[in-house]
Amino acid sequence: DVRMRLANALSKDHPSSVVLQQFADEVREKTDGEVSIRLFVNGVLGSEREVLEQLQNGAVDITRVSAASLENFDPVFRVFSLPYIFEDEDDFYEKMRGPVASTVYQATKDDGFQGLTFFDSGARSFYTISKPIETPQDLQGLKLRVINSNTSIRMVELMGGTPTPLPYGEVYTALQSGVIDGAENNPTALTIGRHGEVAKYYSLDQHQRIPDFLVISNRAMEKMTGEQQEIVREAAVHATEAYRGLWDEAVRKALADAREMGVEVNRPDKEPFRRAVQPLIDEYRRDDTVGPLLEQIVSD
């Protein structure tokens, strides 16, 4: 019998936890209970970075992590943090189901783990305390919290804002007191993270669509028979399909709830933002590790 641990940093009722439980159930059922997966939610086993290390060391077998966390383990994942490489949600799913994904699934094999499937984590957009963002000029002089990633820092710089790294847990108070003028995230940050209580403008410039990946350690893979591996792979793909509906619903609800909280939502023209970050894209096109993959994504 194979027993595995699956770690998810998000809460129990987050769509990803819901479908990962379904994934675990499906695997158990189809392998007649020979492969059982125990789900740990809420980040109880550690941050995404820690869990990836645990994956390399055999304490955890499967985990859902953001591509942003993976880029510190393998630079090829930086490509997903680049702004405006996907047109919209449909384009995202189309490209991610194609050869791009299978390339990156295999990319980390040397690091001890491999990809099973991807999840959409939504489009990231700016939210601010004092004014809606219509053009990149509106970002001028604004201190914007970004995630700890060089790509995100460069992106905000190119758009004209002032990137300000802060731990996620401090964003609420920092917005409230004006330490920062805004941040960027998908709409659930406004509702579940309650940032919408203080940031009253959400501008859907949709600059990034950083996918999450479900990754499994090589060791765990090797513990299973070929047939079981196939079942796991298939169940993972089913999870992605089930997730899309749940996640879209969650995003819709988050936007509606945000409006209810008094957040004004606007849709700026994306073109000027796209032009502003073009130098970053060009720079990565010349990069040896990321270039070919980027070419593949953008040219499709």
Partner: peptide, 18 residues
């Protein structure tokens, strides 16, 4: 693995800005 976890948790317990 248990050893690795002990080491990692000791490190990451300190790895916090707050």
């Amino acid at each position: 693995t248990a050893l690795f976890i002990s080491t990692q948790k000791m490190f990451s317990g300190l790895d916090s800005f707050t």
